[in-house]
Simulated scan of single mutants.
Amino acid sequence: MAGTVPYLICNTAADCHLAYQILYRASFLILDCEGNNLGRAGGCVTLICVGTPLAENIFLFDTLSPALSPRDLDPLWQLFSSPLILKIVWDGRMDYLELWSSYKVRLEGVLDLQVAEVVSRVTMRGEGEEHRLGRLANSYFSKNAVQKHGEQYEGINVLIGLQQCCQESGLGEEFVKDPEVKQMHKDKKADMWTQRPLPGKLLQYAAKDIQLISMLCTVFIQRCWIPSLPGPYNTLLAQCARYVSAHVEQGKSEETDPFRPTGLMPLDVLTQPWGLQYKCTGCNRSLSMSCYTLDDSDGFYRRRRTRCNLCHVLATKYRLRADPEWFVV
């Protein structure tokens, strides 16, 4: 599977019709989106990439094509919004935001491999609190902060990227993203996805992502990171649904927003939200009381922080001023 990845660019109604004939017969789909600053203010999706289970067929839907009418993409939206058709993704949060904000399409029936990877750390790999805190200290926060204030990081998990997961899964050097395109992303040249015609290098990069997600899906099944029993499997699907839709209430954020979606698992995702929910003044998400630090030191009132625990440690990381007030609950 090394080398060039075959794909079909769908920029005419005839191309889309051919793709739908194949996609509607697939047992499940692999999905990924490319675009200009996905999930950020002013961003947009310009290429929707969909593959069949083993990436035998990969279709790249060009949403900027002048030859496509809105009706030509309706069958695609029906696939995405159906809870009966499983969609495999890797970090579908920005894809979900863009599809909803641009097309009012809610992505349903999602299995996000990024969530499965995090869950597997405890359920299949036996990682405990020391491992979780170690990941935080070695990647996103300072070791000093985590060691001194470990209690503030309770329930916060580091996410890893698609490329890192491929490497850790031992897929081999041929299963890597194009370093040149990766560098272009780092250099904030995401508007490259709005160019037409799209360079072959970018089309190949998009198709490669579908292949990588497909390969990882096979690995996850083999390792039982995707449960086969109905109970754990349905629990994972519920976690994935909460994950990909986690930032809808927050909306598309500015690049400079310290509380924008990050490489950390949002709260109220791995555990089922319960009880009344309260809006965080940082991320603007409505979250369970368990996501906040409580204070009842005066013996009469019980108060909570205005920021959730995740936003609190992010504010500390970026040296923002502390919560201006506490809410009585």
Rank of each mutant, 00 (worst) to 15 (best):
L18R: 12
D209E: 12
A246K: 01
R303P: 04
G128H: 13
A55V: 08
I30L: 15
L29Q: 10
D296L: 12
Y292G: 02
A238F: 00
L310V: 05
Q167I: 13
S214Q: 15
C217V: 14
N138V: 03
R307P: 02
V248S: 10
C44K: 12
L212T: 12
N284R: 11
V105Q: 09
L99I: 05
R303C: 09
Y301A: 14
F259Q: 10
P83K: 02
K182W: 08
P258F: 05
L47E: 01
L31N: 12
I85D: 08
H17A: 10
L133I: 01
Q204E: 06
G200F: 04
K104C: 12
C240D: 05
S142L: 04
L162S: 07
R307F: 09
Q21G: 06
V122L: 07
G134I: 05
N309S: 03
R40L: 14
I88N: 15
N309D: 05
A238T: 05
C308W: 10
E117R: 11
R303L: 06
S69M: 11
W225N: 01
L216C: 15
Y301C: 11
L314G: 08
T123Y: 00
I156H: 03
D298A: 15
C44T: 11
N36V: 13
A41S: 15
E249K: 09
R242S: 03
A14Q: 14
R135V: 00
C240R: 04
D191G: 04
S81F: 01
V219M: 15
R319S: 12
V50M: 10
L38D: 14
L31W: 12
V329M: 13
L54K: 12
M1T: 04
T293D: 00
